[in-house]
Write a protein that binds this DNA or RNA. Structure first.
Lengths: 232, 232
DNA sequence: AAATAATTGTCATGAAATTGTAAAAAGAAT
DNA sequence: ATTCTTTTTACAATTTCATGACAATTATTT
């Protein structure tokens, strides 16, 4: 599985050039042009490295850095700055950056530093741990025992299919997943059941976990596509 | 059960030769000569690999790739291109391809890459890749969650058609697209609606994203032709 | 400039497609 | 055989978006 990098740079041509180069090195790259977009990414996903331009519209890189560090002490941050040196560097490191590169920079150099920093990433080491207990709202799912605690603390014994489907939806949380994707992953390669089967499982989940099954909060339908599991 | 490959190539002799070879390797091969046929396959079947010629009549391979990726981030896509290198490769990878082969290619080489890519396919399904968020002005579109943030920070849940149309306009940003093109791409092989339908969607978009819907800045009409999405 | 034609903006409406739901049938497991 | 799980089926409820009418705008002709 590839390492993930978040690239925050407002200048389009530079951003795209860097992104392209990182992708050719087989990193998965998400890019943002503004600080707010960057923060949204960060609150939704996990990265192995964040590359951050100091000079951004709206919000400067230092402030973003600080905000990131409030939530996440680990992901390495690499600063890009146009200024010559000294002051920015100190400021950056003080605010929680890990490394620092002066624009205009040499691409080779960037790639080298990226490599070093990504390796350092803590998450990189602890990433693949299987999820055992997952909680959302007042609900709890224990994948090890296949038991769940749902509405009003009620215990539910989950079946295999239920567990697998829940697992998939949770992995994909926040994202829309099509019925095709669901069938393909949960049912694997044997001949699929009709997609209506999926709806019935969702029906069960809503019964277990939704305070008001008619107005679901976690197990959302996306008309014409499939479903979306939401955490909050 | 054998792995399934979708082969999209307009040149008959090449398509049949490749198909034959893949079948000798025990793959199940579906083949299509046009983009629309390919999309029809994709919308009701699951593949372990899609081999896509860049140069196709009607709709080019890049656009098809993008359309696939809107719904399915996992199935590996292998590009075939006649051009020498560089630009196409970059373009392809940017649009979501996984690998790339220059025509004329060696069959051994093709089979080798196919093998690698197919293996990657099944296991990676649950990969939780970073979200792709597109921003313009103060607006944000998240294709993975089918949510957008528009005027005054208001959240909008997008429907599939809205998502698909936005995707297309954004792919073609800065360029004028005719209604016919839009119908072709977004509505695909189905029987087309009247072009008035498109206007309705544009109307919605302006409502979501334009500060002053009467004086659009992003979703521009081009009288006598169609529409143009502009970034800035 | 005015009149006319063509295109686009806008909105209410309903048909068609999708999803919710529950009960029955089919398949597995004990 | 009995119980539990999964799938199918049928019908109700809901959502989407395609359509058509008319207004507003833009282009073309007189």
């Amino acid at each position: 599985m590839n390492e993930r990098i978040l690239l925050v740079e407002d200048e389009d041509s530079l951003r795209e050039a860097v992104k392209m180069n990182l992708e050719m090195e087989k990193y998965e790259v998400a890019d943002a042009a503004t600080g707010t977009a960057a923060l949204r990414y960060i609150s939704n996903g996990v990265f192995d490295l964040i590359i951050l331009d100091v000079m951004l519209p709206e919000m400067n890189g230092f402030d973003i850095c600080e905000k990131i560090r409030l939530k996440d002490k680990n992901t390495p941050i690499l600063f890009l700055t146009a200024k010559n040196a000294g002051k920015d560097r100190v400021e950056g490191l003080k605010r929680g950056a890990d490394d620092y590169l002066v624009k205009p920079f040499n691409l080779e150099e960037l790639l080298l530093r990226v490599k070093v920093l990504v390796k350092r990433s803590v998450k990189n080491q602890a990433k693949d741990e299987p999820l055992k207990i997952y909680t959302f709202g007042k609900n709890e799912i224990n994948f090890a025992t296949q038991k769940a605690i749902g509405n009003r603390g009620k215990e539910v014994e989950l079946t295999i299919r239920e567990t697998e489907l829940l697992n998939f939806l949770i992995i994909k949380k926040g994202k829309v997943v099509s019925r095709q994707e669901i069938l393909n992953f949960v049912w694997g390669y044997k001949d699929f059941p009709s997609t209506r089967t999926i709806d019935n499982f969702i029906l069960s989940f809503r019964g277990y976990f939704e305070a008001d099954p008619r107005k679901p909060k976690y197990f959302l339908s996306v008309h014409g596509v499939g479903y979306k599991f939401s955490d909050k």
